[in-house]
Design a protein around this nucleic acid. Structure first.
Length: 820
RNA sequence: GCCAGAGUGGCGGAAUGGCAGACGCGACGGACUCAAAAUCCGUUGAGCUCCGGCUCAUAAGGGUUCAAGUCCCUUCUCUGGCACCA
């Protein structure tokens, strides 16, 4: 019988679906395993071979875990709210709901082609009212805890998408989605206090089995820095004294502070600016406001600033130093004001050089870079010995750092402080296609949460949903939606018209799969405690910061509310590498994407070679965590392998015996079981397939000619290939007289003794170069093998007439003789 | 600039400090065929060879070691992240 993937694949997919083989077992004594794919947003373009990679990977892993005796939860759903879905709908002139449904049907069909074992009965959809009711519910819990609040904020405004974006959605001051340049716009925004969780989000990274790279990225994003707030005094023109707090991580350089710079937004500026400087300062502030962020932060931008005419007093030595305004100081970080130590900070150095401000060295080191006249040629920012620092002279800077703060703290002039770069999360969007924020504004009662019994606040079905562009959500134009009664006093009120960002629904969806249809609560606690946390989360590295940080934040909040018994959602994270291909458009190797014109559709390949071959090739292409270049040619190899495996299994079955088989074959089989098991466990899928190829090469090779093998051995082989090529394995399982599915069987075990050979080959080196290979019994003694090595003709060519200095035998590995 | 990660045949890629190049693609030679495709069998890092072997080779240079693709230092290149965060 010929291997006809097209026929058997379709057949088995239908059978699997009908029999409900991949339904998660509700009640089970087996250990649980929760394997989760990052759910896709239903784009209009469908899946390419790059998307397949992660799905194939998690499927192979899930099938393996099932065979290992785990009860498996492996669900799939749709992240269907948000900008991309809405933009796609606008482009096609369809309503987002209709368009989303269409896209979902298409992607579901494509996902099924992969032959993955999803439990489709648990499918969820973030834009379904039955789901977003609970997204709104979670928002209300945060509101009640004071974690959701409103604030007038200069937000990142994308003129193209006509919406505000979170900092995380801005890449190089451009919109992550459409690439247009971001403007600043002052608007009332809902914010989530993720900063309150900064320390826990940072600290708990330690407990996670995640790629180090992702942990580092999150840690950098949270950006913890320890330092001190130091109190300066500034005199206003009227003679009043004002306190000015600055934040620094280098209190040890305080004696070197020669000026102070305030962010243009700093509230003290109008109070302290001297008459003569008022005009310049006002002009500068206006300019700074107008300039877009990109101009302000452009690379290699010259420092700008202006003197206020005021002076601050350095608390440590009473020195009066000028107060400047400069836009290189950010209002949103620290205190919006800094003490400047040009000798030991690169930015301050550049500023001081430009405006000719004094440079005072207070950290001495041999490593300082100097020009010919002995002056610093650039800032020295590392540790050293303190100088020009009064009683702190000759102290180590690392120690002095603490000593100075201690000394100032005793005088209430400083405080040890920790700052984070992480900002609160801007949680509102001025768009239609998202979860309405469940708040009403009452003239009397102010912000009132919608009572839980009234959830969901339904997204009204409307004709016109395009963004208004004024900054208001399209919902603001729908009176039936806006006008409502205050839940508290019954008086006139209006609804919040902003919607939530796309990240909202995906921040908790993993909690919904264990009880996807539950009407009375977002999750069933019993089911949660059975399945959560997620044991293995598979997805792209592009979500390293945003999605994963938000999901962790939501989980911690719900934990604090007492709803969860765990405070980290994903125990293990696996990032599959991207699939790249040369792009004719950019003339570069790029990640597969429609815009780069370098996508490869799996359709033709599936048609020609079958799903199983494409699955294998996705894995064989390289290590799963590494990016790889797609090349259609390689698929021939895995296809040939599957066909050889098929042919071998069928013919071996025909001539099989119940009794004995070639011992060499038994050994190869046990080596195979060992290799596949170990390589699956360590996610080395590519070399697992290589090992299988070697096995089949052996099974079809000269040594095995006409030698019968045991039925049980063929069965084991079929089970071993089943996670990789499920359709082929299922068909072979059937042909070899099994009525139940191969996935109801058990992963084979191996005998360690059978993986070791009695005779082994030991290379013999002279001075590190191999001169011969000896075939010896595995248990040979050191003495015997060294004797044998020295007798060897080729070895003697190199040892005769020389003195043996050292003889090394690493048991079962190598002999090395050092001769002089 | 800072922080990660990577650099191995014509190509994708293998190698717990222990025979560098497994496995696959491609190429070449052969078998089968009227012929081609498919399939099967060989060869395939470079150079030399008295056909036994020998020399060189994992981005470049240095070091540790009996032994280095692997560990350490310096440099170069590429990819990703951050980027005036004091």
């Amino acid at each position: 019988m010929k291997y006809e993937p097209k026929e058997i694949e379709k057949k088995w997919r239908d059978i699997w679906e009908k029999s409900g083989l991949y339904r998660t077992e509700e009640e089970d004594l087996k250990p649980k395993y929760y394997c989760l794919d990052m759910f896709p947003y239903p784009s209009g373009t469908g899946l390419h071979v790059g998307h397949w990679r992660g799905y194939v990977l998690s499927d192979v892993w899930s099938r393996y875990k099932t065979l290992k005796g785990f009860s498996l939860l492996h669900p799939m759903g749709w992240d269907s709210f948000g900008l991309p879905a809405e933009n796609d709908a606008i482009k096609k002139g369809l309503h987002p709901k209709t368009n989303t449904e269409k896209n979902i049907n298409n992607i579901r069909r494509q996902l099924k082609e992969i032959g993955a074992m999803y439990d489709w009965s648990r499918e969820i959809n973030t834009s379904d009212p039955g789901y977003y009711k609970w997204t709104q519910w979670i928002f209300l819990q945060m509101f009640k805890k004071g974690l959701a609040y409103r604030k007038k904020m200069p937000i990142n405004w994308c003129p193209e998408c006509k919406t505000g974006l979170a900092n995380e959605e801005v890449i190089g001051n451009k919109c992550e989605r459409c690439g247009s340049e971001i403007e600043k716009k002052d608007m009332m925004q809902w914010m989530l206090k993720i900063t309150e969780y900064a320390e826990r989000l940072l600290k708990d990274l330690d407990k996670l089995d995640w790629p180090e790279k992702v942990k580092i990225m999150q840690a950098n994003w949270i950006g913890k820095s320890e330092g001190a707030e130091i109190l300066f005094t500034v005199k206003s023109p009227g003679g009043q004294e004002h306190h000015l707090k600055v934040f620094t991580t280098r209190p040890d350089t305080l004696f070197g502070a020669t000026y102070v710079v305030l962010a243009p937004e700093h509230e003290l500026i109008p109070k302290i600016t001297d008459k003569n400087h008022k005009k310049d300062v006002t002009k500068y502030i206006e300019m700074a406001k107008k300039e877009s962020e990109i101009e302000r932060t452009a690379e290699k931008k010259e420092k700008t600033g202006v003197f206020t005419g005021a002076y601050a007093v350095n608390p440590v030595n009473g020195k009066e130093i000028p107060v400047w305004v400069g836009d290189y100081v950010l209002a949103s970080y620290g205190t919006g004001a800094i003490m400047c130590v040009p000798a030991h900070d690169e930015r301050d150095f550049a500023f001081a050089k430009k405006f000719d401000l004094p440079v005072t060295e207070v950290i001495s080191s041999e490593k300082s870079a100097r020009d010919s006249s002995g002056n610093l040629s650039k800032a020295y920012t590392e540790e050293g010995i303190m100088v020009n620092s009064g009683k702190f002279d000759r102290m180590d800077s690392a120690k002095g750092r603490n000593e100075i703060v201690k000394w100032l703290e005793e005088r209430s002039l400083a405080k040890k402080t920790v700052k984070y770069k992480l900002r609160d999360w801007i949680f509102s969007r001025q768009r239609y296609w998202g979860e309405p924020i469940p708040i009403v504004f009452c003239e009397k009662c102010g912000e009132v949460p919608v009572p839980e019994a009234q959830l969901p606040v339904l997204l009204p079905e409307v004709e016109k949903y395009q963004p208004s562009g004024t900054g208001d959500s399209p919902l603001a134009n729908i009176p039936e939606f806006v006008k409502t009664d205050c839940p508290k006093c019954g008086g006139k009120a209006r609804r919040e018209t902003n919607t939530m960002p796309q990240w909202a629904g995906s921040s908790w969806y993993f909690l919904r799969y264990p009880s996807p249809g539950l009407k009375t609560a977002p999750f069933d606690e019993k089911q949660l405690s059975r399945w959560m946390p997620v044991d293995c989360y598979v997805g792209g590295i592009e979500h390293a910061i945003l999605h994963l940080l938000y999901a962790r934040f939501f989980t911690k909040v719900l934990f604090d509310c007492g709803y969860l018994s765990f405070d980290e959602p994903f125990t293990r994270l696996f990032n599959q590498g991207m699939v790249c291909k040369f792009s004719e458009k950019t003339k570069k190797l790029e990640k597969m994407s429609k815009s780069k014109g370098n996508v490869v559709s799996p359709d033709n390949l599936v048609n020609k070679y079958g799903t199983d071959s494409v699955r294998l090739y996705e894995l064989f292409i390289g290590p799963p965590e590494v990016d790889s270049e797609w090349n259609d040619n390689g698929i021939e190899g895995v296809y040939k392998f599957l066909r050889r495996l098929w042919d071998w299994a069928l013919s071996a079955w025909e001539t099989s015996s119940d009794g004995t088989e070639n011992e060499a074959f038994t050994r190869q089989l046990h080596i195979l079981i060992k290799n596949i098991t170990e390589r699956l466990e360590s996610f080395r899928f590519n070399t697992a397939i290589s090992a299988f190829m070697e096995f089949i090469n052996f099974a079809l090779g000269k040594e095995m000619k006409d030698s019968p093998v045991k039925k049980a051995s063929i069965e084991k082989t079929i089970i071993l290939i089943s996670p990789f090529a499920p359709h082929l394995a299922e068909e072979l399982w059937k042909i070899t007289s099994h009525n139940d599915s191969v996935f109801k069987s058990k992963w084979p075990s191996y005998d360690e003794k059978l993986t070791i050979f009695d005779e082994i080959e030991i290379p013999v080196q002279i001075n590190g170069k191999v001169r011969c290979v000896l075939k010896v019994p595995e248990s040979i003694s050191e003495e015997d093998i060294l004797d044998k090595a020295l007798e060897n003709e080729n070895v003697r060519k190199f040892t005769d007439g020389r003195k043996l200095i050292k003889k090394i035998y690493v048991p079962k590995k190598i002999v090395n003789l050092v001769a002089k």
